[in-house]
Deep mutational scan, measured.
Amino acid sequence: MIFPGATVRVTNVDDTYYRFEGLVQRVSDGKAAVLFENGNWDKLVTFRLSELEAVK
Rank of each mutant, 00 (worst) to 15 (best):
E37Y: 12
N40Q: 12
D42W: 15
D15H: 15
A33Y: 15
D29S: 07
P4D: 04
K43Y: 10
V13K: 13
R26C: 13
I2W: 04
T46Q: 08
F47I: 05
Y18W: 06
G39T: 09
R26P: 01
L44N: 04
R48F: 14
I2D: 01
G30R: 04
P4I: 10
K31A: 09
Y17C: 07
L52M: 02
F47D: 01
R26V: 12
V27R: 01
T11S: 07
L35R: 10
K43S: 10
I2C: 05
K56V: 14
P4F: 05
R48A: 12
L35F: 09
V55N: 03
R19M: 15
E51A: 07
T11M: 08
A33E: 15
Q25N: 04
K43Q: 11
R9S: 05
T11R: 06
V45Q: 06
T46P: 04
V10K: 00
R48D: 14
F47L: 05
Q25P: 00
V8K: 00
G39K: 09
G22T: 01
D14A: 11
E51D: 15
V27A: 03
L52D: 00
A54F: 14
L52K: 01
S28T: 10
Y18M: 02
I2Y: 04
D14Y: 12
G39R: 08
L23E: 08
Y17D: 02
V8S: 00
G5K: 02
L23Q: 10
V45T: 04
D14I: 08
I2R: 01
P4M: 07
A33I: 15
V34W: 02
T11H: 04
R48V: 08
S28L: 09
Y17R: 05
Q25T: 13
S28C: 14
Y18N: 03
L49N: 03
I2L: 06
V27W: 03
V13W: 06
V27L: 07
G39Q: 09
V8P: 00
E51N: 05
K31L: 13
T16F: 13
D15P: 03
D42C: 15
D29Q: 08
A54Q: 10
V27M: 07
E53G: 04
F3T: 10
S28A: 12
E53P: 00
R26T: 15
K56Q: 13
Y17V: 01
P4K: 08
R19Q: 14
E51V: 05
T16N: 10
D42I: 15
Y17E: 02
D15C: 11
Y18P: 00
G22F: 03
L49S: 02
E37V: 14
V10A: 02
V13N: 06
R26G: 10
A54W: 12
F47N: 01
L23I: 15
M1P: 12
V34C: 03
P4H: 05
Y17N: 05
E21S: 07
Y18H: 06
T46R: 04
V24C: 06
A32Y: 04
I2P: 03
A54L: 15
T7L: 13
E51G: 03
A32R: 01
R48G: 10
K56W: 12
G22D: 00
F36N: 00
V10M: 01
A33D: 15
I2G: 02
G22P: 00
R9E: 03
G22V: 03
A6L: 10
A33T: 15
G22A: 03
S28H: 13
Q25V: 15
F20L: 10
V45G: 04
T46I: 14
R19T: 10
V27G: 00
N38Q: 12
V45I: 10
S28G: 10
F47V: 04
D29A: 09
E51C: 05
G22N: 00
A32H: 01
N40R: 11
V34G: 01
G22C: 02
Y17W: 13
D15G: 07
A32C: 07
F36M: 06
S28M: 12
R19I: 03
D15M: 05
K43R: 12
V8A: 03
Y18S: 03
D29E: 10
F20N: 06
M1F: 11
T16V: 14
K56M: 13
L23M: 09
T16Q: 14
L23G: 02
G39C: 09
L44C: 09
E37A: 13
L49Q: 04
Y17T: 02
L35Y: 12
N12V: 07
N40V: 11
N38L: 14
K56A: 13
V34F: 01
T16I: 14
L35K: 08
V55I: 12
E21C: 08
G39N: 09
A6Y: 08
R26W: 15
R48T: 10
F3S: 09
E51P: 02
L35C: 07
W41T: 11
K43E: 11
K31R: 11
N12R: 11
V55L: 08
F47G: 00
D42A: 15
